[in-house]
Structure formats: structure tokens, C-alpha cells
């Protein structure tokens, strides 16, 4: 328990005392928000995720690989 507390305090003090780090964390959080809340949700839906099983995914890709002229 003591170890966990030390690790927690280590990170807490580290984040509290950051100078440039605060700006960098803001940049990182904005990036992650844009990527996972906007891009991933609205633009980057993996095409094969609409299929439930691997067999259906395989069938879809096999069709694409054999039907394309």
C-alpha cells in the first residue's frame, strides 16, 4: 500500500510541478479528443466492423479480391 501511495505521490507532484509540461498535456488532450471523439466516431469506422464474424469478413474481402476487374 505504501508503494502505491509513493507512486501516486510521485506522479501527482510531477504533474503539479510541470512548467512546459502543462502546455504539452493540453496539446496531447486536445489531440486525443479530436482523434477519438471526432475522427474515430464520425470518419474512421473500420469498414469490416459492420460484419459480426470473421467468416463474413473473409467473404467480403474474398469477393473484393476476386470480383475486381
Amino acid at each position: 500500500m505504501n508503494t502505491f501511495r509513493k507512486v501516486y505521490e510521485f506522479y501527482r507532484d510531477g504533474f503539479r510541478n510541470m512548467e512546459v509540461g502543462k502546455t504539452l498535456w493540453i496539446i496531447i488532450l486536445i489531440k486525443l479528443a479530436i482523434m477519438f471523439l471526432i475522427l474515430r466516431v464520425f470518419f474512421f469506422r473500420p469498414e469490416l466492423s459492420r460484419y459480426d464474424t470473421d467468416a463474413e469478413k473473409a467473404e467480403h474481402v474474398r469477393e473484393n479480391l476476386t470480383k475486381q476487374p
Binding site: 474512421f44 469498414e47 466492423s49 479480391l65
Partner: peptide, 15 residues
């Protein structure tokens, strides 16, 4: 983002 693109734009390749 490169890894996102594999799934979305290059799904035949990814599979």
C-alpha cells in the same frame, strides 16, 4: 492516425 487509416481506408489490405 496511421493505424486508424489501415482499418478505414485500407480494409482489404488490413484483412
Amino acid at each position: 492516425i496511421l493505424e486508424f487509416e489501415f482499418g478505414t481506408n485500407w480494409s482489404n489490405y488490413s484483412w
